[in-house]
Design a protein around this nucleic acid. Structure first.
Lengths: 266, 266
DNA sequence: CGGGCTGTTGATCAATTTCAACGCTCGTGG
DNA sequence: CCACGAGCGTTGAAATTGATCAACAGCCCG
């Protein structure tokens, strides 16, 4: 097992506290302490819908950043829960390990998304979170988040929305797993990635997958060979072009018709 | 479509406000206004872990009860979200309707469980909730719940736990749908029901299903015929006895081995 | 009593998994 | 610098699982 925990020290040198006044308008994000007020992800992450002073309060919470190398663990199943993690950059998967050794991928996560919500229920993480590329996360002490949200109702409400959205998303995946065929699942998956890349300013029709066929298969409830075949089929139909991990969507409309019952995909 | 909304008037006659002092120690639950403090479901529902005065505050929120007849809707997809619902008695299913008409059951819900969490994200319900037997729910105005939880931290925390548990549960279902075979799925499903009945004081080995084979199939990602065959197979192996909706578990240990990777089922 | 709904079972069919072979890329060590 | 093995991906053929189609039985209710 080569995936050891890559513990970046709690205080990254780049995160030394600088007086607020010393941060000019033009910001070099790697040289200031992490703060929601200056984070380019404000519109994606927890600060959505908060005003400046509320964001400041939230930002005061989030003084630590943590880097995880590709293949490293952000957290492991059973580990004590203290922090939520907001993804600042990178790409991670979460997966539950079964007793018999197999693993089921429960999600792929990108910039601006929140990890660790599952752990609130028992104060233990219920899944592994593993970086699929070098990643960086903000650590949000959960106890303090609850504390602050008492005085910032809109933060509390935003947090509830985020949790609720997670539930809705999972229902979408249940639908996919419960009622779609292989090709429909893959189409849905690609469209979902496409949309999420697009929201983040990347091309919606041209991107690189960060995960293996096996990981896609695990997420979609398929074997890796089936995933591979489904890719080939979509390529034969000239809907996409596949070059290993590089995907190009040629005909997004036709891809949409492949998934059949459109609506559910978050 | 015979399932119209069965709107019980907001104030049930049984729920007329009686002075607190007039409720003696021995309570006839049907004759007092609904209150978490006196509800026999305290240990299952939102009040878990709260002290008396905190429960009182929560209880003051929950002045309405609502009855839903078998087949009636508690809420429909797209309806405006205002209330969470705590199930007081009965049995409901939630399901998402696809454009093409099919429906996917996303959950079966019993006494003490909370419905409506998915709706927080968009202020619209994202699924239908339908009673599988005559049911009664407490209505919890969500705005007020957030308000009160500002001053009752343990209520807020408990609520977060409930939401988190929902996420963990969904991950369990994803695992089931993504990696189990028909028989494993049914075994998992039966064991889950068994445990939930048992927690509520009913027999863990002898119970009646409230849902049809088709609904089970939808939930488990199988066709109703497959569900029926899986039941028959488990019966042939003398692990259970099936008499239509009545299920008797003879050998719970062997049923557990059927599901293989035990752990995940909430 | 008949019709609709639910559930069971059999036979066949289709989709996915499994098993197997092979190609490509990348990093390491001779 | 090349050889080699590991990991990842593709593809084919066979095996398995579950879906589909179809018949029928039981039950409830009008």
């Amino acid at each position: 097992m080569s995936n050891l925990i890559k513990n970046v020290p709690p205080f990254d040198l780049k995160n030394v506290l600088l007086p607020e006044s010393s941060t000019p308008n033009h910001l070099d994000i790697s040289n200031i302490r992490s703060s929601c007020a200056t984070c380019s992800l404000r519109e994606l992450c927890l600060p959505v819908g908060l005003n400046e002073s509320e964001i400041q309060e939230l930002g005061d919470l989030v003084s630590h950043k943590r880097k995880i190398q590709r293949g490293g663990y952000l957290h492991r199943t059973g580990a004590t829960f203290q922090m939520l993690f907001a993804i600042r950059s990178g790409f991670l998967k979460t997966c539950v390990l079964e007793e018999d050794g197999r693993q089921q991928v429960t999600g792929f996560h990108m910039t601006g998304e929140l990890l660790g919500l599952d752990a609130i229920s028992t104060d233990k993480h219920t899944c592994d979170a593993i970086a699929l590329e070098d990643s960086e996360v903000c650590e949000i002490p959960f106890v303090k988040l609850e504390e602050i949200s008492r005085s910032v109702p809109s933060l509390m409400h935003q947090f509830h929305k985020v949790m609720s959205r997670e539930i809705v998303k999972d229902h979408g995946v249940m639908l996919l797993l419960g009622s779609m065929k292989a090709e429909e699942r893959l189409a849905t998956f690609l469209l979902n990635l496409s949309r999420r890349f697009s929201i983040r300013g990347y091309s919606s029709s041209d991107f690189n997958l960060r995960m293996t066929r096996e990981e896609i298969g695990s997420y979609l409830g398929l074997k890796l060979e089936t995933v591979s075949r489904a890719f080939s089929k979509l390529q034969d139909e000239q809907i996409i072009v596949v070059d290993n991990k590089h995907i190009q969507i040629n005909d997004i409309e036709r891809l949409r018709t492949k998934m059949g019952n459109s609506s559910c995909l978050t």
